[in-house]
Computed example of a mutant assay.
Amino acid sequence: MPTGVALRDVRQQLFDAAERVLLRAGPTALTSRAVTAEAGCAKGVLHRHFADFDDFLAELVRRRIAALEAWGATMRETAGSGPVDENIADALAGVFDPVGLGLISLIIARDDVRARLSRDGRPPGLPLLAEATAVLAAYLTAEQAEHRVPAGADVPTLALTLVGTAHLVFADRERTPPGPAATRALVASLLRTAAS
Rank of each mutant, 00 (worst) to 15 (best):
A17K: 05
L128N: 06
L160I: 04
C41I: 12
L128A: 07
E69Q: 12
D85Q: 06
S118C: 06
A25C: 09
A145T: 12
E86Y: 09
A195I: 05
R192F: 14
P98H: 12
D120I: 01
A188T: 07
L22G: 04
L101T: 10
L14I: 06
A25Y: 00
T133R: 15
A181S: 14
A73F: 06
I88T: 02
L23T: 06
I65E: 08
R119E: 14
A181Q: 15
A70Q: 14
V61C: 02
T74M: 11
T74H: 07
F96N: 10
R20P: 06
R11W: 10
I107H: 06
R76P: 00
N87G: 12
D16C: 03
G4C: 10
Q144E: 10
L103H: 03
A182H: 12
L162E: 04
A137H: 08
S118H: 05
H47I: 02
V61D: 02
L60S: 01
L190M: 08
V45M: 11
S81G: 11
R8M: 12
L7W: 11
G44E: 14
F15A: 05
T176G: 03
L140P: 01
A42R: 01
A159S: 11
V169F: 02
L191K: 08
H49K: 09
T161W: 11
L103C: 07
V187R: 05
N87I: 11
D120V: 00
A142W: 07
P124N: 03
T74S: 10
A29V: 10
T176R: 15
V35Q: 00
A195S: 15
L190D: 02
P150R: 12
A188I: 00
P123D: 08
T31F: 04
V99R: 11
E131R: 12
P178C: 06
E146H: 04
P180A: 15
A171K: 12
D111R: 15
G102W: 01
A29Q: 04
E146G: 06
D16H: 13
E131G: 08
A58S: 08
L190G: 01
Q13N: 03
S32D: 08
W71D: 09
E131D: 13
G94C: 07
V149N: 03
